[in-house]
Design a protein around this nucleic acid. Structure first.
Lengths: 136, 136
DNA sequence: CTTGACCGTAGACTATACTCCATAGTTTAT
DNA sequence: ATAAACTATGGAGTATAGTCTACGGTCAAG
């Protein structure tokens, strides 16, 4: 299929597909072109793009995705290899989640403190609670 | 103080400070320079940079930080104004946290399914659970 | 035939937040 | 005096993931 069809089927834009090709995530050989020099994309390429989309959804970068795709291609995406990569990603996610939870709690606490300490009748100046060296 | 001292005190690099100046987050007037054209940074500038660091830690972008800093400067960083901004940031954090939790759970479930379904004695091929259209 | 859509390529641009490079003047310490 | 460190400016580069622009060839429908 041509790039327009591939874009429609993959849900990615033509520019994105070209970008992935330039980055090396997909490869089109010289002999995979039509006589008019248009590239003929195979079902394998479509599958590869769909895998990239799923990996990206899980937070894998394009480079990480390329690594995984190559492992799949040479059949080294074994249970242990992939599990290991997934567990690393989970650890990163967990760390990030903890970080964000702590931050949101700090922000919430700041607002709570403001509500209980500030005088709502005098809103004409910077908040002494939220705008301070100990907070923002 | 000169930029080297400001960098040491703020914990930001000289390049970062110059970048912030170029972005408009801090401003040095013509008359705030020494005779040799070196910029004289005030304590106010240092405080402003420290505020930027705290805001950045909470996930505010440089542009958002500039807005908040300007509000502080003209004394419009009132309780309600800042609370509103904080609550918006909390909402974004909450949404992102939910998203990440869902993703990590999906990843964990995938690994669990692999452990319970795959034969650990045959690790010579792609994992049929983790490497599939329904997962990665 | 003509026009618009599609294809291809290269390179610039966007967003965000720096970081590095090059050049030149000033200051400091040996 | 000399070399190194510091200051200034402008602009390019990095990382990530696209998106847009410009130009030219090909194809399909009116």
């Amino acid at each position: 299929m041509l790039i327009g069809e591939l874009a429609a089927k993959s849900g990615l834009s033509r520019d994105t597909i070209r970008f992935y090709e330039k980055q090396g995530l997909i490869t089109i050989e010289r002999k995979q072109r039509r006589n008019n020099n248009y590239k003929e994309y195979s079902e394998e390429i479509l599958n590869r793009l769909l895998t990239i989309k799923r990996l990206k959804n899980f937070g894998f970068t394009l480079n990480e995705s390329a690594v995984i795709l190559d492992m799949i291609e040479i059949r080294e995406a074994t249970c242990s290899n992939v599990s290991e990569m997934i567990e690393k990603k989970v650890q990163l996610l967990d760390a990030k989640i903890l970080d964000m939870v702590a931050l949101r709690n700090q922000l919430i606490n700041g607002v709570k403190k403001c509500v209980s300490c500030c005088n709502p009748a005098t809103p004409e100046d910077n908040c002494p609670i939220l705008i301070s060296d100990g907070f923002l």
